[in-house]
């Protein structure tokens, strides 16, 4: 058992209790989330900055159906993640794995819908450097922000599957599942800002 494990299991005779009463791994995830929020915030500020500066920013989205479905899927996957974590905490391993995999499936579905949407837009002539509706920066910012988010979703799905399998095999415990869950909720949380800023404000009337 290493020192790190000591902190993870709250074995506090040899060391000071952790600052915020959470294991180091969870703390690291929170720190990652803080850093990542700064990254997304920088991207969104950059997008907002450019959008405000352009009086004729394109508003090409006709339908909200796809993005609404994607939002519901992602928020629901957060909920299923919570069920998985709860089951793991209660010791019901099979149920926990099942819910985790359902969450991962939700992530995959989200990613597929997203890619389908991307392909649709690419079909309409939207590229990183141009689009048929106006400011070239529309495509650039849309693809880079949603792309960054999609990258996070993909990473999250892989993490969920890996952690889920290893949890099943006994290598990881319910805490690890919970920490992966933290990340997954964060991906969901970022989407909550991406939807209104990138989609809804660019809705054509």
């Amino acid at each position: 058992m290493s020192h790190a494990d000591l902190t993870l299991e709250g074995y506090s005779a040899a060391i000071m209790p952790p600052a915020f009463s959470i294991p180091a791994k969870k703390m690291a995830m929170w720190l990652f989330i803080i850093a990542d929020s700064a990254t997304f915030a920088a991207c969104l500020v950059a997008y907002g900055y450019l959008r405000v500066a352009d009086a004729h920013w394109p508003r090409p989205f006709h339908s909200i159906t796809n993005v609404a479905i994607m939002t519901v899927i992602l928020v629901t996957s957060s909920l299923t993640m919570l069920f998985g974590i709860d089951a793991a905490k209660a010791g019901d391993k099979a149920k926990a794995v099942r819910w985790t995999m359902i969450t991962a499936a939700g992530g995959i579905l989200f990613a597929l819908l997203h890619i389908r949407e991307w392909l649709g837009l690419i079909d309409e002539g939207m590229r990183l450097f141009q689009n048929p509706w106006g400011s070239a920066l529309f495509g650039a910012s849309f693809f880079s922000i949603t792309g960054l988010h999609l990258l996070h979703v993909t990473g999250g799905v892989i993490a969920l599957i890996v952690v889920g399998i290893r949890y099943k095999g006994g290598r990881y415990n319910s805490d690890d599942l919970e920490i992966t869950g933290l990340y997954w909720h964060f991906v969901d949380l970022v989407w909550m800002f991406v939807v209104p800023l990138v989609y809804l404000l660019n809705l054509s009337h």
Partner: peptide, 24 residues
């Protein structure tokens, strides 16, 4: 309006989904 609502959503997610309310 969008930002206020998104912030409320995010706060709910952070506090209850991510259990920040239950932490230290």
């Amino acid at each position: 309006r969008m930002l206020v609502l998104a912030t409320i959503e995010a706060a709910l997610a952070v506090l209850f989904f991510m259990h920040l309310w239950m932490e230290n």
